[in-house]
Design a protein around this nucleic acid. Structure first.
Length: 596
RNA sequence: GGUCCCGUAGCUCAGCUGGAUAGAGCAACUGCCUUCUAAGCAGUAGGUCUUUGGUUCGAAUCCAAACGGGAUCACCA
């Protein structure tokens, strides 16, 4: 039985024997004791004043005394107003440390036999990835790792949006102005090359709109009338008809883009188990439309278009099939949801998609429910906020984006500069150095994007956002490297830790106690982060742990310690912290260096 | 206009299902490297938690309204 449960049942017993209350185990709440007070766990007695008809202080005193007398874990207590602070004996902490924290399978949670699919990244193939995509990729990867750690069987999926009007825009611009340029001839990464023509299209398209507006055409109309737009739409039609030349161009340009994406994915260290291509799935969903019509969940309008009425759920009427029988975004997504379930039978399906699509996913889930799909309840939209720049929103078309590849490159350069500045790279090979810069640069970037609650939008200031000091990835990596140095030295000196000697230890240093308390919380943190789909909770936790260790490091000497048991314990303590930091950072997709 | 999200220190952010004197980091200021890595540690200063009501023994947290910011309400994806 774990400590909290033991104390709770102790309190429940106290309430029963001292005040005659029935079993309260379920309702008793314990919270961590605030730093200013002595103790580790706090019981709040206010809620029991009416039941016991006693003053909060008196309840605290009575229960505190009972626990101290009856539980060996409780060494002492103090009462401040309605707060009963419990001091747990160091012996208890040491026993938890050696039996639980140090055990091989600590924080290794058993499989829960459930499968979850996490779809993330899902890029358009007409332009390179930018900072917003990085947040998406890092979130998706990290959430997958966290779900795995909490016992799920995870399938990471990437639905590539490889067809549609946006790709045709790039293709058209390339046809018109590309002069047969290739990634090889231009030296541009494939996705950047495609992006270049997307931007070019938009520039020329805007000119055409302006000309039309000058001729007195309304803006909305001008957008439709512009010749470039009409040509792009023609391309799309030809593509759908299977026009050989167009399909070949599409395949060629998409090929370039995939090469580019794969290079970026490899650099930033994200992976997928399954790729879906929209060109294969965009016709799906029509059978769902049939099904919905048969079930009378959907209805047909006179022009033949198919709709669903969601007004009773506070939403609008939603189109599912155009009058000409072609499908729209939501139709495809319905089809894909069904396909995913048929293929993987996952109980949960997580979509890592920006919060601008909140409405879309509300509709999607609602329709699946109305159709009586068993998997509807498992659909979860992990809706994350945008990354804003000081100048406002990022827009690919207008080129006001922070490009992912550029940013990563910059991060590695900064990592290199910082490292050289500090001059601690003696004994590193050139290869080691490059690997280190990558760990640090990406660590800083990933941590920066993951430490914030996914749901919230965040600000990225290129000038000053990503630091290497303070609440950052490199701070945590540094702590790990520091501990690694200690463990290396311990090995060299052949100081091993021996659990048996811990019991002969006297008192723990407060910083050691704090560290142990934090470490015991790791498994529940993983569960909580999985439940909330929130890597930020892991990020925050690992930061707190690293901070606690550095505090310990400053206060307590290790190798000059003469008491063998204390020395042994501190090595074990350091080892355990390093292990958790490493594991926690893995859950964020961040690598950790032995030296830096 | 309807719906949804957000508003905490100069800046960027924590604050779990309501609990004690609201926490970190950056920036500012003080100290600490001949002793295990100073990308660190210790400390000072900085807050009417947007505002106003309400519920409660207790509200940054829950409810309502106002103000401010954002997203969305496409036969685009």
């Amino acid at each position: 039985m774990n400590l909290e449960k033991k104390i709770k049942s102790g309190i429940s017993e106290a309430l029963k024997s001292q005040f005659g209350l029935e079993d309260q185990t379920e309702t008793i709440q314990l919270q961590p004791t605030k730093k200013e007070f002595e103790g580790a766990l706090t019981f709040v007695s206010f809620p029991y004043t009416s039941k016991t008809k006693k003053a909060p202080e008196q309840i605290g005193e009575t229960i505190g005394k009972f626990l101290k007398d009856n539980l060996e874990e409780v060494a002492d207590f103090n009462v401040v107003k309605g707060f009963l602070n419990l001091v747990i004996s160091d012996k208890t902490w040491l026993s938890i440390f050696s039996n639980s924290v140090l055990s091989e399978d600590f924080a290794v949670l058993p499989s829960n036999g459930k499968r979850v699919m996490v779809e993330y990244s899902s890029p358009n193939t007409n332009k390179p990835l930018h900072l917003g995509h990085l947040r998406n990729n890092f979130l998706g990867y990290s959430v997958s790792e966290i779900l795995k750690a909490s016992g799920y069987d995870v399938v990471k999926a990437n639905l590539i949006n490889d067809r549609g009007i946006h790709i045709c825009k790039s293709m058209l611009a390339y046809q018109l102005w590309g002069n047969g340029e290739t990634p090889q001839s231009s030296g541009l990464k494939g996705d950047h090359l495609a992006g270049k023509y997307y931007v070019l299209f938009d520039k020329e398209y805007k000119k055409e709109i302006d000309v039309l507006k000058g001729q007195g055409v309304e803006e909305e109309e001008a957008k439709k009338q512009a010749p470039l737009m009409k040509q792009a739409q023609e391309l799309l039609l030809k593509w759908e008809e299977g026009d050989k030349e167009i399909v070949a161009l599409w395949e060629k340009m998409n090929g370039w883009v995939y090469d580019g994406f794969n290079a970026t994915y490899k650099t930033i260290g994200v992976t997928f188990d399954k790729f879906y291509y929209e060109s294969n799935t965009y016709l799906l969903g029509k059978n769902i439309v049939e099904e919905g019509l048969a079930k009378k969940v959907f209805f047909k309008k006179p022009d033949g278009s198919v709709w669903v009425d969601l007004t009773s759920d506070g939403l609008d009427e939603k189109l599912l099939l155009r009058g000409d029988g072609t499908s729209v975004y939501i139709t495809q997504d319905l089809g894909t949801a069904d396909l995913k379930f048929q293929e993987y039978k996952a109980e949960k399906s997580v979509y890592v998609v920006g919060n601008e699509q909140d409405y879309h996913f509300n509709v999607l889930k609602l329709i699946l429910k109305k159709l009586g799909k068993s998997y509807a309840d498992g659909v979860y939209h992990l809706s994350y906020g945008m990354v804003d720049l000081p100048s406002g929103k990022m827009k690919s078309r207008e080129g006001t984006v922070v490009d992912a590849d550029d940013l990563v490159k910059e991060m590695l350069e900064t990592a290199e500069a910082r490292t050289k500045e500090l001059g601690k790279i003696e004994g590193f090979s050139e290869e080691d150095l490059q690997a280190l810069y990558k760990k640090l640069g990406l660590g800083a970037l990933k941590y920066f994007l993951l430490k914030v609650d996914p749901k919230k939008r965040m600000l990225f200031n290129p000038e000053e956002s990503i630091e290497f000091q303070g609440h950052t990835g490199p701070f945590i990596q540094y702590t790990y490297a520091r501990i690694s140095a200690i463990l290396r030295k311990a090995k060299q000196l052949e100081v091993d830790y021996n659990k048996e000697t811990f019991s002969s230890l006297g008192n723990l240093h407060p910083s050691e106690r704090e560290g142990i308390v934090l470490m015991t919380k790791f498994p529940e943190k993983i569960q909580e982060a999985a439940r909330n789909y929130a890597p930020s909770e892991i990020a925050q936790y690992i930061f707190d742990l690293a901070k606690a260790y550095n505090h310990f490091y400053g206060e307590v000497a290790i190798f000059s310690e003469e008491n063998k048991a204390a020395l042994s314990f501190r090595i074990a303590f350091s080892f355990a912290v390093a292990k958790i930091i490493n594991r926690g950072m893995q859950l964020l997709g961040i690598e950790v260096p032995e030296k830096m």
